[in-house]
Design a protein around this nucleic acid. Structure first.
Length: 271
DNA sequence: TAGGCCATCTGGTCCT
DNA sequence: AGGACCAGATGGCCTA
């Protein structure tokens, strides 16, 4: 089922330098196939400063890589520059992937060798919903605290009677979520068995396409479908029923409306 | 085999 | 000028 595990472990985001270099050479040959003859393609090793180019080849390369400078660089110089730029870009993407892995680690999602790694898009969407859920929980906590200290301890028993016989799903191992008083057992609305497909879907992105079903994410039979953040439910183990307590209700509009707020670019695009 | 996901290359643009 | 960032293109790997 999770045969993709091997893929995850066998596909490091930062391949060995030799592989990178070979890939670079291959790509270079491919990219410049219009300028490099097939015979030259058969001699990859010559590309690394050893291959001799025809005058046409060199001119073509120079024009394509250094047209901004309006000067013709030697093949070695161009190759060096190109490799340097490529290396930087690889490092940048590698750092990005490291950050993405770090995000995955703190997500309420089962980790382990038998669990398929979240895709990038799924990670981002899940993170977003997770933040929304936590924000909602925090707001609710504040409300409960003011309620307790204001008009007596409605939640004094740390759990509303409304929750009745509902049993909450247990916490996810390793998950850093802080449990709250009214719900000693941390809820994970984004996880089975009570995962709402809606919780991961974003406007314009269907949950079905954005998250593969075998992730074990967000496929709760009969779970209420709806727009992103429409509901965060606790689920009674064995009952399959959402917890009716106030913690489980629809997030306030000001929270859900975040989905409509475009994220501004850090760098100025206006010009 | 089609589609999803990913890494990489590449050229352009913006920023310092 | 050099580096960071971005998006398009490409090809590989994997799954259904």
């Amino acid at each position: 089922m999770d045969s993709d595990t091997s893929r995850v472990s066998s596909r490091p985001s930062s391949p060995e330098v030799d592989d990178i270099f070979l890939a670079t050479l291959k790509k270079s040959v491919h990219s410049y196939s219009s300028a490099v003859t097939s015979t030259q393609c058969d001699h990859l090793s010559e590309l690394h400063g050893l291959r001799t180019l025809t005058a046409e080849d060199e001119e073509s390369l120079a024009l394509r890589l250094a047209k901004k400078d309006h000067k013709l660089l030697s093949e070695n110089e161009l190759q060096t520059i190109r490799l340097k730029i490529n290396s930087r870009e690889r490092k940048r993407m590698h750092d990005l992937n490291v950050a993405m892995d770090g995000l995955r680690e703190v997500m309420p999602y089962a980790h382990g060798p038998s669990v398929r790694k979240l895709s990038k898009i799924a990670t981002l969407l899940l993170a977003r919903n997770y933040i929304l859920m936590l924000s909602n929980s925090l707001e609710e906590m504040k409300r409960l605290v003011s309620e307790i200290y204001g008009s007596g301890a409605h939640h004094g028993g740390f759990h509303p009677a409304a929750c009745g016989t509902m049993t909450h799903a247990g916490p996810v191992p390793g998950h850093p979520v802080v449990s709250h008083a009214s719900h000693p057992a941390v809820h994970h609305p984004l996880l089975p068995p009570a995962v709402s497909t809606a919780s991961l879907s974003a406007p314009g992105i269907s949950a079905v396409t954005s998250v593969r079903a075998h992730h074990g994410l967000l496929k709760a039979p009969g779970a209420a479908a709806g727009p992103l953040g429409s509901s965060f439910h606790h689920w009674g183990v064995g009952t399959g029923m959402p917890c009716p307590c106030s913690m489980c209700q629809v997030p306030p509009p000001h929270v859900t409306s975040m989905s409509a707020v475009p994220m501004p670019r850090l760098t100025s695009d206006s010009k």
